[in-house]
Design a binder for these strands. Structure first.
Length: 451
DNA sequence: TCCACTTACACATTTGAATAGA
DNA sequence: ATCTATTCAAATGTGTAAGTGG
């Protein structure tokens, strides 16, 4: 096994301060993650972001794009995203607001999107924002393309995980650091419910230019461009025009920040029905979300959600609570010790972005390959007390027993065709059983990861 | 009848191969 | 022969509108 300390000779310059203080200090980390395009996210969030989900899979818009800080340049990291239910409800759109329409349906198979650059050295992750542009959402529970499966009319928010590991096989030794951003929560839909969201998407998504007012295809509009304000009289027209006037002109969206979101929140009904309670006025939701950076305990999901988010967010309640002071980004600094012991791994295929000399010396990273099951196993073991000191998060609510996923039939969720037998066997035969994670781990936490 | 969902469609961007020129 | 820039077609990503089914 190769400890991460073995990387030290690869440093061409003086070691980082933390590293110079000794091996243990080197393992200390201060990873920070910020969300890019926060103004755009907030603009959607104020109205109540909706994300289309389709059978073949649909990209998110806005798409998840984050910037990372505090990574060790030479240590390798894996970046993951999964979608977490906001609550235990199903929603319906009633005239101009979302209302609770009953209990949430049983959660679909939990999938995690692995950033195609993973694993990559910290220098790679921090040199530019990391985009999850190709992440797709689907409502097809039998999806075999690796898209993240969601239920329509349910609310979710993306969770970003950064794991220091040479490869996915090494994740078992690593600590997951998890980040979430309040403004990225959304409702999964098969068709847009809120016309304001439709308008926003059209005005900001380049692929939807053909539907813009100033475009040549005005005939597509069922409603006249200004009809939206008639249909939705409560909406702040001036603010809306601020960002709708010109695509990509996010500076104008700052006007929206000044809007008292409570007025426009489509989540009024939810707040009336939800078990959650609103955050106190002026409360800084950042702190609350910071807590989620800790890999949650294996306790049932719902209590965790209530605890972590209980003060927050309806989409509106978090508005203006950013601690960034208008920096244009959300930022969360991890308080989790960046402790990871990277085991030896025989990786031989360099990744494209690592070809060529690097300050870290020669790097050999595995090429695209499927780690399905391995990571699941890893997560399972990681949940074992004493292994890494953190528990793995259980995405299933208390209302939904894990039993339904305990024995997924191969026909229902077959491994991807490119999944090697070894990996599958490894995942199945190691049989880590630690409470709920045992069941969860059998199934594709990171299944069909996108490469 | 209502509502969630699917599908075909037109229009947009993105991507990659082919080609031309330096 | 190599590299770069341009062109073009195919692939892919959009929301719309009509239709389906519970």
């Amino acid at each position: 096994m190769q400890s991460i300390r073995d990387l030290k000779p690869n440093f061409s310059g003086p070691p980082p301060a933390s590293m110079a203080a000794g091996p243990d200090a080197y393992l200390q980390g201060n990873i920070r993650m910020t969300l890019e395009d926060t103004e755009l996210w907030k603009t959607f969030h104020e109205i109540g972001t909706e994300m289309i989900i389709t059978k073949p899979g649909r990209r998110m818009f806005p798409h998840c794009k984050v910037r990372l800080f505090g990574l060790h340049h030479c240590a390798k990291y894996i970046l993951l995203v999964d979608m977490v239910p906001e609550d235990g409800f199903r929603y319906k759109w009633n005239k101009d607001k979302w209302e609770v329409a009953g209990k949430a349906e049983p959660q679909p198979p939990c999938r995690t999107y692995l950033h195609p650059d993973s694993p990559a050295p910290g220098s790679h992750w921090i040199k530019q924002p990391v985009s999850f542009l190709k992440l797709k959402l689907t409502n097809n529970t039998l999806d075999q393309h690796g898209h993240i499966i969601l239920h329509s009319m349910h609310r979710y928010h993306p969770r970003f995980h950064i794991v220091q590991a040479d490869d996915l096989f090494s994740v078992r030794w690593s600590v997951f650091q998890t980040f979430t951003f309040p403004e990225t929560s959304f409702t999964a839909v098969t068709a847009y419910q809120n016309t304001k969201i439709t308008k926003l998407k059209i005005n900001h998504n380049p692929f939807a230019k053909g539907f813009r007012d100033e475009g040549t295809n005005k005939k597509r509009w069922v409603l006249p461009p200004d009809a939206i304000f008639t249909v939705l009289p409560h909406f702040c027209q001036s603010s809306y025009e601020g960002y709708a006037r010109e695509d990509g002109d996010l500076a104008k969206s700052k006007e929206v920040d000044a809007v008292k979101v409570e007025r426009y929140s489509p989540w009024v009904a939810e707040r009336e029905h939800s078990v959650r309670t609103d955050s106190p006025a002026g409360a800084d939701t950042r702190d609350m979300y910071n807590a989620e950076q800790l890999v949650p305990a294996p306790a049932s999901y719902q209590p965790y959600r209530v605890h972590e988010y209980g003060k927050s967010p309806s989409p509106s309640s978090s508005i203006g609570s950013s601690s960034n002071g208008g920096s244009g980004r959300s930022s969360f600094e991890s308080r989790v010790p960046d402790v990871a012991t990277v085991p030896d791994h025989d990786s031989s295929k360099p990744r494209a972005h690592e070809i060529g000399p690097t300050p870290c010396g020669p790097q050999h990273l595995p090429g695209p390959q499927d780690y399905t099951g391995v990571l699941n196993m890893t997560m399972a073991q990681a949940s074992k007390p004493g292994v890494i000191g953190h528990h793995i998060y259980n995405p299933y609510s208390a209302e939904q027993p894990l039993g339904q996923w305990s024995s997924p039939t191969p026909t229902q969720y077959p491994p991807p065709h490119h999944l090697t037998t070894d990996y599958t066997t490894q995942a199945v035969h190691h049989g880590y059983h630690h409470g709920n994670m045992a069941e969860w781990s059998q199934y594709p936490l990171f299944s069909y990861s996108c490469w």
